[in-house]
């Protein structure tokens, strides 16, 4: 693994909603061009982590360093031009706007729309091209997910944050989306993906972090995490052997 030039480094990040602390001091690193997965159950703090990186939530303490920029001190709209784009939880496509205009909004931070890039997004998700003049709200869940990812690619990001891209999708669509993510990664985009679907996320990623109620409890190579007994029991649905005996 590349050890130098970390792209994104989170140090002892604490975030709370009122009196409830969502992140209790997490640290993680992302290197250029790798795919990193954060897995964990509901309420573990996965979405909070991504929203804090994007500047939608203020950190209580700690640092998020991205290529020399301290992201915790930068407002959300200035983080996108630095090269960090997010496909948020629940997709949040602009329902009453057409698919094509959603993509154009994705390129908002570029001042000028890169139509070659839009073609690339359409190649990645041909379904979007067929429906480019349709209102985004009329798309199916899977298509909306494609649009959310496509939209986040339009600003030519260096780093892509994906929040639960598999949520609520049929297995065949999950496969399709994850294949696309692999393809995006091949283009040199660094990916930080947050997932409840631990198996799919760990198969896709190079490294993984396991988040439990605001703490990182385990991290390492994704292959090793897939084999780890503890993780298999907690997240991959394998029953404890000794219970069967």
């Amino acid at each position: 693994m590349k050890t130098k030039d970390v792209l994104l480094e989170i140090k002892d990040l604490k975030v709370s909603y009122g009196h409830i602390s969502a992140l209790k001091g997490i640290s993680l690193k992302v290197y250029p061009s790798e795919i990193v997965a954060i897995i964990g159950s509901n309420g573990a703090g996965k979405t909070t982590t991504l929203r804090t990186i994007s500047g939608l939530i203020k950190a209580q303490s700690g640092e998020i360093n991205y290529r020399g920029h301290e992201l915790t001190k930068i407002p959300a709209h200035k983080i996108v031009p630095l090269g960090i784009s997010q496909s948020p939880e629940g997709r949040l496509v602009f329902g009453t706007i057409t698919v094509e205009n959603n993509l154009k909004l994705g390129a908002y931070s570029l001042k000028k729309i890169d139509y070659a890039r839009m073609e690339w997004v359409y190649e990645l998700f041909p379904r979007l091209k067929e429906r480019k003049n349709q209102l985004a709200g009329t798309l199916s869940g899977g298509e909306q997910q494609m649009l959310a990812i496509g939209r986040s690619l339009m600003c030519n990001p260096e780093m892509l944050l994906l929040d639960e891209p598999s949520l609520g999708l049929a297995p065949i669509l999950v496969k399709l989306i994850f294949k696309a993510i692999k393809e995006i990664s091949k283009q040199g985009v660094t990916v930080l993906i947050v997932e409840q679907n631990a198996r799919a996320a760990l198969r896709l990623s190079d490294r993984g972090y396991v988040l439990e109620v605001g703490n990182i409890v385990e991290y390492g190579n994704s292959e090793e995490l897939l084999k780890s007994k503890k993780i298999q029991e907690a997240y991959l649905g394998k029953k404890k052997q000794n219970q069967l005996i």
């Binding site: 959300a76 996108v80 949040l92 496509v93 909004l105 908002y108 931070s109 939209r151 986040s152 600003c155």
Partner: peptide
């Protein structure tokens, strides 16, 4: 929030 994520 979605608008902010577009850099707006």
């Amino acid at each position: 929030d979605a608008a902010r994520l577009m850099g707006i």
